[in-house]
Design a binder for these strands. Structure first.
Length: 151
DNA sequence: GCCAACGTTGGC
DNA sequence: GCCAACGTTGGC
């Protein structure tokens, strides 16, 4: 079992949007960074992840999700109408991938970035490191348990 | 809106 | 393969 953190801009796709989806399940589309993609390909069905809201009024962890389907081709890359379109990704040779996530817990209140920074045992967390921009990052078991115990 | 940090692109 | 220029991310 591995743990992860998935970033999304809530204006684009928020945890509330996920909660309102049929089956509360959604393909995690639009990851267009190789390192983030490689992390997604390392995910296994049953892994758990934090849902992080970025570039918004209150950045932070909004809840948790479960990986319910391992990596498959990101079809949005093959849709010319999609903002995530990439002509170099094809059905025969996909460049980008999605995992399917299902809502586990929607926190009543966001665990804010300043809150996360106050916990010294989280100092090494990837998301808290200076300059980190990756939208998919691994989370250690210890980090997962500390944060999850707060809600 | 600012700006630091980072990833990607493309000329050489 | 180097690296400057550029675009993007994301907190503030």
């Amino acid at each position: 079992m591995q743990y992860w953190l998935l970033k999304s801009e809530p204006d684009t796709f928020s945890i509330e949007d996920l909660a309102n989806r049929a089956q509360q399940t959604e393909p995690w589309e639009g990851v267009r960074n190789y390192q983030a993609r490689n992390y997604m390909r390392a995910m296994k069905k049953g892994d758990l992840a934090f849902f992080y809201h970025s570039s918004c009024a209150i950045p932070g962890i909004a809840g948790t999700v479960k990986i319910v389907k391992a990596a498959t081709a990101d079809l949005s890359a093959m849709d010319p109408e999609s903002p995530y379109f990439d002509a170099k990704s094809t059905v025969d040779n996909p460049r980008w991938y999605v995992v399917h996530v299902k809502l586990v817990k929607l926190f009543k209140t966001i665990i804010t970035l300043p809150e996360l920074r106050t916990e010294k045992d989280l100092a090494e967390m990837v998301i808290l490191r200076r300059g980190n921009r990756l939208s998919v990052t691994p989370v250690s078991r210890e980090e997962w348990e500390i944060i999850n115990s707060w809600r």
